[in-house]
Computed example of a mutant assay.
Amino acid sequence: MTDAYQDIKSKLQGSITALVTPMKADGAVDYDALAKLIDWQIAEGTHALVAVGTTGESATLSMEEHVEVIRFFVKHVGGRVPVIAGTGANNTLEAIELTAAAKDAGADCALLVAPYYNKPTQEGIYQHYKAISEAVDMPQMLYNVPGRTVVDISQETVERLMVLPNIIAIKDATGSVERGVALIKAVGEHLVVLSGDDPTALELIKHGAKGNISVTSNIAPKAMSQVFELALAGDFEQAAQIHDTVKHLHKDLFCESSPQPAKYALYKMGMIDKGIRLPLVWLSLDSQPIIDAALAKANLL
């Protein structure tokens, strides 16, 4: 493994925000708001940022927009924190193209969601990731989120993939502590294991996970960065005390399909405009009081 890969591995830790992609009321990407969000996240202590992940509405951005948002992220962050670019697709050639574009843009790592909808076998999943790894020489992170993709990267497949030199990490969004612990035991010496599930992330840190790729940190970045800094330092008592002030958000921000609640919350906080793209819609009137109450409880209004 190259020194550059080792360097980024050491930086993939703490609170990592899967940032929303702010949009104007007509659905156009709002780059001014994106710049403000990036600056706020970094000022609040966020340790790394994910551009155009699931929370960033990657599924509804065009290829050109997807690449442009990654370029904007890298340029605006300016090396202050690592930029992880969401470049996954269920079309292997498209994933290769996006990953190559992320490398050209200067992203620090590519985040590759398991190929959704096609329902590939484990061999198909392995060959998908192997092809991307061989095609693009940059640090790459596996992303297992079966609740969205309807496919599940088995631990055995992860173990096959971890020997590829540029696959350096995995985002485990299964939501299962038991599975996460087993994964850490099996691959933790080779891959950085990050939680992708806010409710179980702190528990996984206790077992050796290095951080959390978070939805909640979109709206509570300071608290989440403090929680994971303390946890990584071994101070789980203080981490839990801070976590208690925001942990209700983990549930409330999924009262409807994400990122609908997170975008509404950021709008209420004065951070973004009222923009989202179909088939996602603005948070319903029935759910808005849930987020209003959650923000008030967390002292975010």
Rank of each mutant, 00 (worst) to 15 (best):
G175R: 03
I184T: 00
R160S: 08
K130D: 09
E159T: 14
Q155C: 10
I184L: 12
D197Q: 08
I184H: 10
K206C: 10
K130H: 05
D198G: 13
V193A: 09
A131Q: 15
V187I: 00
H190F: 02
M141D: 09
I168K: 11
L183C: 10
V151T: 15
P146W: 08
V163K: 14
V187K: 10
G147D: 10
K185D: 13
E159I: 11
L142M: 04
I205C: 04
V163S: 12
I168F: 09
A173N: 09
I153D: 05
E189I: 00
G208L: 12
V151C: 15
I132C: 04
D137Y: 01
D172S: 11
P199F: 07
R160K: 15
D197I: 06
V136D: 09
H207Q: 13
E203Q: 13
M141G: 03
V193Q: 05
K210G: 07
V150F: 14
V151W: 13
P146I: 10
A169G: 12
R148D: 00
A186L: 12
S154N: 11
M162Y: 04
E203P: 00
R160N: 07
D198E: 14
A173I: 05
R179F: 15
D137I: 08
V136F: 06
A209W: 08
V192E: 11
R179A: 08
I167T: 04
A169M: 03
R148Q: 08
A169K: 05
I205G: 06
T157K: 14
L142T: 05
M138I: 05
D137P: 01
G188F: 07
V187P: 01
A209S: 14
D172C: 04
L161V: 06
A173R: 11
V158M: 07
I170Q: 03
R148F: 03
V187A: 09
T174C: 14
K210W: 11
V145M: 04
V187Q: 06
S176N: 15
S176P: 11
I205N: 03
A209L: 10
V145I: 06
S176Y: 11
L142D: 09
V177P: 08
R160A: 03
A173Q: 09
T149R: 02
I153C: 01
N166Q: 05
L191T: 08
E156T: 13
N166T: 03
G180T: 11
R179Y: 15
E134T: 06
V187F: 01
V150Q: 15
V163Y: 10
K210Y: 09
V193M: 11
R179L: 11
A135E: 13
P165N: 02
R179H: 15
S154C: 10
V145D: 01
K130I: 03
T157M: 14
S176F: 13
V192C: 10
V177D: 12
H207W: 10
Q155I: 14
T157H: 13
K171T: 06
V181W: 09
G180H: 02
H207K: 12
T149F: 01
E203S: 14
N144Q: 07
L183F: 01
